[in-house]
Nucleic acid binder design. Structure first.
Length: 470
DNA sequence: ATCGGCTCGCGCAA
DNA sequence: TGCGCGAAGCCGAT
């Protein structure tokens, strides 16, 4: 691994052809990569500011109608932004957070900018924001892709069929992209750039003033947002848990996982940084390989999916064979049927499933292995597969701290056959992969998982996590 | 404990 | 055109 301050050209894209112009500053419109370190967009913006002899402004648009987001997500994100504002100040940069639609905030501040730099998001609304800013800014807009290891179009020009088809494509490029990002010092002190923004100091009152859904409470007692927290989690994982990662990934009663998904979702830590830390650790090659498989291959398969599948959030995103077989079995008799409300409040006959749902509701997280079982049973217990898909995706996005991530859409669709292959045919599922409670009992100490969740729910309640419908 | 079949289609070899 | 093989499994046979 080499050390360099050069940012790979393939991470950088011009989003319009507006001519250069005079301006008071270079603007970095931070929206996805919410961090002050190992952020290619930020370093690129600093380099541009230095080249133009200008100061740098960094802005963030805080909208109160982000699709499906609620107080749980906002709290975690704002904790991270607090952290990021402090870290930027140490680099002589002010973070200007303004209330409003992200594209509108970026355009306000773009009026006095010579150049706008933005980071990259792959969901429909994230792309729409950037398209509008590119069309209306009146100055060059440059997008820098910093939240994947291999840029999405470098990996592949199309929607990949499965992990096995994207895996070799990603591995071909890994060495070219797993490189350190050296920081560049900003020449002109930009601490007092004279742009007013929200005060992030008092998060409670800021959250109160936002017109958002408060029915899902924050889970700060367990998960606090921010780059510092993310780094601490990573180093604790590497020191204490990584050695058991392989054997315990299918054991939800353990906690030998990173819990980095939520930090990656808000861009609070870079996947390139995480991968480098893991590869430089003393662990065995086998462990490193299985970690890279999750962090890079599967995560970037999800990015590939949402990027190249216009309807990534609709039942029609499923492969033909899966929709065909599920349609053939849609009238099969269901042994159990539950309403969305019964599912949401964890009132089924299945104690394991209820524990998984309660983990999600009260902690904002669910063990990776239980996510599969959780989704498969929603398919099994719903009237139709397309309704099951809708319910699974909605519950996922409402309660997971990292809901609405590309991974959310890929993981939920996987339940219904995406990126998978057919298996033995049975009722309701057709040839879509089935999972059983017996499998959990065989592979894990599932009773201990149920006990662990009972304790965790109790702790959450003591910390003030409460629901009106409970 | 371990193994093969289940069942579809991609991607590569020929 | 044929063939190997696959995002995390299940089940029954041995």
């Amino acid at each position: 691994m080499t050390s360099t301050s050069v940012i790979e050209d393939s991470r950088i894209q011009r989003l319009n052809d507006a001519p250069p112009r005079e301006g008071r500053y270079v603007l970095y419109w931070m929206q996805q990569s919410q961090r002050a370190e190992f952020n290619h967009a930020l370093e690129y913006a600093i380099q541009q500011a230095n080249q133009h002899g200008l100061r740098l402004a960094v802005c963030f648009g805080l909208t109160d109608d982000y699709p499906e987001a609620n107080a749980r997500h906002y709290r975690f994100m704002l904790e991270g932004l607090q952290d990021t504002a402090t870290a930027l100040r140490r680099r002589k940069i002010a973070l200007v957070v303004r209330k409003g639609a992200p594209d509108a905030v970026a355009l306000q501040l773009a009026r006095d900018a010579a150049l706008v730099v933005c980071d990259r998001g792959y969901l429909r609304h994230q792309r729409d924001w950037r398209r509008r800013v590119a069309e209306e800014a009146g100055c060059p807009v440059v997008q820098v892709e910093s939240d994947v290891v291999v840029p999405v179009e470098v990996t592949s020009p199309k929607a990949e069929y499965a992990a096995r088809t994207i895996r070799p494509k990603i591995h071909t490029h890994l060495d070219d992209y797993l490189i350190e990002l050296r920081t560049t010092a900003l020449d002109k002190d930009s601490t007092r750039i004279g742009l007013d923004g929200l005060d992030l100091f008092d998060l409670d009152s800021l959250l109160d003033r936002l017109d958002i859904d408060h029915s899902v409470p924050p889970v700060s007692h367990l998960f606090t947002g921010g780059t510092a927290q993310a780094r601490a989690r990573l180093s604790r994982f590497l020191d204490e848990r990584f050695k058991r990662y392989d054997e315990n990934r299918k054991r939800p009663e353990t906690d030998d996982v990173t819990h980095l998904g939520m930090h990656l979702h808000f861009g609070q830590i870079s996947p390139v940084y995480v991968a480098i830390q893991v590869l430089e650790s003393a662990a065995s090659k086998k462990l490193k390989d299985s970690f890279i498989e999750e962090l890079v291959v599967r995560r970037e398969l999800a990015v590939n999916f949402v990027h190249y599948t216009p309807k990534y959030d609709s039942y029609s995103c499923l492969p033909d064979w899966a929709r065909r077989t599920l349609a053939e079995h849609k009238d099969d008799e269901r042994e159990h049927r539950y309403t969305r409300r019964e599912l949401e409040t964890a009132q089924t006959h299945d104690r394991y499933w209820n524990a998984a749902m309660r983990e999600l509701r009260y902690t904002g997280y669910m063990h990776n292995y239980m996510r599969m079982y959780w989704g498969k049973k929603i398919l099994e217990w719903s009237g139709t597969p397309s309704y099951a898909y809708k319910v699974a995706l909605e519950l996922n996005n409402k309660y997971f701290l990292d809901g609405r991530d590309p991974n959310s859409f890929a993981n939920v669709a996987w339940i219904f056959g995406l990126h998978d292959r057919p298996w033995g045919e049975r009722d309701v599922y057709g040839t879509v992969r089935y999972m059983s409670a017996a499998g959990l009992e065989r592979k894990a100490d599932i009773e201990r998982y149920v006990e662990k969740i009972d304790e965790r729910v109790e702790a959450a309640r003591r910390a003030g996590v409460k629901f009106d419908d409970a």
